[in-house]
């Protein structure tokens, strides 16, 4: 049972890393970034390039991959998304614009790296697992869980304790007001995009050793993390953490009892939450309104 719990926890943390970026963009920028899964994919390919091809070492490679992904995300905001803010029917155009990035990124990846599966080996010290009695914790999973927690803590500090975080909260509450109070809204938004997509990239880079790195892998991630974000409350950072935990564990235990219907679990949870508590389970605190 405990091993099942830990298994669910690992899934949760990877989900959380992607979902946290998605919810951040929504909370602050009011943009639903459909292409977020593609930044996850970019992160994985950057990591492959840096770790397996260039050979700069695993952890530096993963970090740098996240940064590069963040830069790509900031570019998308700066040169494209920015031009449609405040336009009539903006939400529809957001979907289209970010969706066009899914297509473009998928093909760019295919042009550069081809369609074969790329792989990164994890550092040797992280190969095995720790066993404590019946409990079985793969070392690499422990690193993923720890990274997830660290990111959660770091983001908490950034949002709650820093001046930057205060700006974020101000923009999220009222963009015009924040601007008139002297917050540089455009720069902050680009930065938030960079940060959020970097989180997506980090998640992709960390997943590369344990998943398949192939074009098209971003699409599976986006729906999963969207569900997580909705459950936690759109734009709510902590909600994303709890949402990820719920989905991870519901799947982990659900498959023990109803293996045939695993395909419906997460949608069912999402629909239930929306019907009974549309604002998400945790919509009191957090970045958004």
């Amino acid at each position: 049972m405990f091993t099942q719990l830990i298994g669910g926890l690992t899934s949760s943390m990877t989900l959380f890393l992607v979902a946290s970026g998605l919810t951040l963009i929504f909370g602050v920028g009011n943009v639903f970034n459909f292409a977020h899964g593609s930044f996850y994919l970019l992160g994985a390919y950057f990591a492959y390039q840096l770790v397996s091809v260039t050979g700069i070492g695993f952890f530096p490679g993963v970090l740098l991959a996240a940064l590069c992904t963040g830069a790509a995300g900031a570019v998308m905001e700066l040169f494209f998304l920015r031009r449609i803010y405040g336009r009539g029917g903006e939400e529809g155009f957001q979907i289209l614009l970010t969706y066009s990035f899914i297509l473009i990124i998928d093909d760019v990846v295919k042009m550069i790296w081809g369609t074969d599966y790329k792989s990164i080996s994890r550092p040797e010290i992280l190969d095995g697992a720790w066993t404590i009695g019946d409990l079985f914790v793969p070392r690499y999973d422990a690193v993923v869980i720890a990274t997830g927690l660290l990111v959660a803590l770091g983001m908490w500090g950034l949002i709650r304790r820093s001046r930057f975080g205060r700006n974020l909260r101000a923009i999220s509450a009222n963009r015009e007001m924040a601007s008139s109070l002297g917050v540089n809204v455009p720069v902050t938004l680009s930065f938030v995009f960079g940060l959020a997509t970097a989180l997506g990239g980090l998640s992709g880079a960390l997943s590369a050793p344990v998943r398949t790195v192939t074009p098209g892998a971003g699409v599976e991630v986006i729906i999963g993390s969207m569900i997580v974000v909705v459950i936690g409350g759109l734009g709510n950072f902590w909600g994303a953490l709890v949402g990820a935990l719920i989905i991870g564990e519901v799947t982990a235990f659900g498959i023990l009892f109803l293996p045939q219907w695993a395909i419906l679990f997460s949608y069912a949870v999402m629909a239930l939450v929306l019907v009974f508590r549309p604002q998400g389970l945790f919509m009191k605190q957090g970045v958004a309104k």
Binding site: T3, I6, G7, P259
Partner: peptide, 21 residues
């Protein structure tokens, strides 16, 4: 036992622990 994750499931960890059991 049997398990049927969806096609292209990115994460098999919960299934693996169930299989080991």
């Amino acid at each position: 036992g049997q398990a049927w994750p969806k096609l292209f499931e990115p994460d098999y960890t919960p299934y693996i622990t169930a299989i080991l059991k």
